[in-house]
Amino acid sequence: MTASPHALMLRYGLLSVLAFIVVCPLAWLALASLRPQAEIFQPISEFGWNTFIPSVLTLDNYRTLWEGDFPLAVKNSTIVALTTVVFGVTVNALAGFAFAAFDFRGKNLLFLLVIASFMMPFEAIVLPLYVMIRAFGWTNSYQALIVPEIANGMVIFLFRQFFASIPRDFYEAARVDGASWLYIFVRIAAPLSWPTVATSSLMLFLAQWDSFFWPIVAASAPDYAVIQVAIARNINFEQNDWGGLFASTNLAILLGTIPFLLMQRFYVRSLISSGIK
């Protein structure tokens, strides 16, 4: 495909403007966290270079975070997110496999419920869920944060779609050879499903990393504060710690991209090697 130089210039010009608009707030956020508290909002009124380039660079905001409760929140979020990924991928993959490989009574109705579960806003079930968690005596615990997030309709749906795309011959050949369904799942279906495992892990991880509403309802004690809750606590009735807010937001974003970068390798490789046909 060839385009005239003018059309190319126009295209790249427009894309550059768009990119600037998208990146600008993030860049401002990153830089603001490196400014002294007093200077953060000062340059906004007089728009210019100073809006973006800080006059003084300081890590004070990060140092304060490090000394406070933020490391605990990072640890909590990491534990919660990773545990959810491990259990979530296992449980949802098994469920998706069952929907794809077996015929059983009420299968379509059940699958409809699975789909409905991710169409429904989470807020709709917060209250009954909270009542349940409290009845179990789980408030302010890791279970409260992890268990409700393990089963995920969207992830079940993704796995079902993948397992249904594996030729039935694979399952049947293994059955004739004497394999149990669990063996077929572990040795044949699961090893082929790397792309779905990578996608689902990311979805489950990010859902937990970004979750705010449920943690503040179910585990509001400081010991169980997760990263988004810790970020929000920079702003309260007594004070507005903007530096802390921006620094913690930056860290949350940076740490949140690590699993993506790790998974990306598998993601690309599995797309290449899964040539089923």
Partner: peptide, 11 residues
């Protein structure tokens, strides 16, 4: 049984 699509496990 030998299947029409061979059913060889790709991995």
């Amino acid at each position: 049984m030998v299947f029409q699509n061979y059913a060889l496990y790709p991995h």
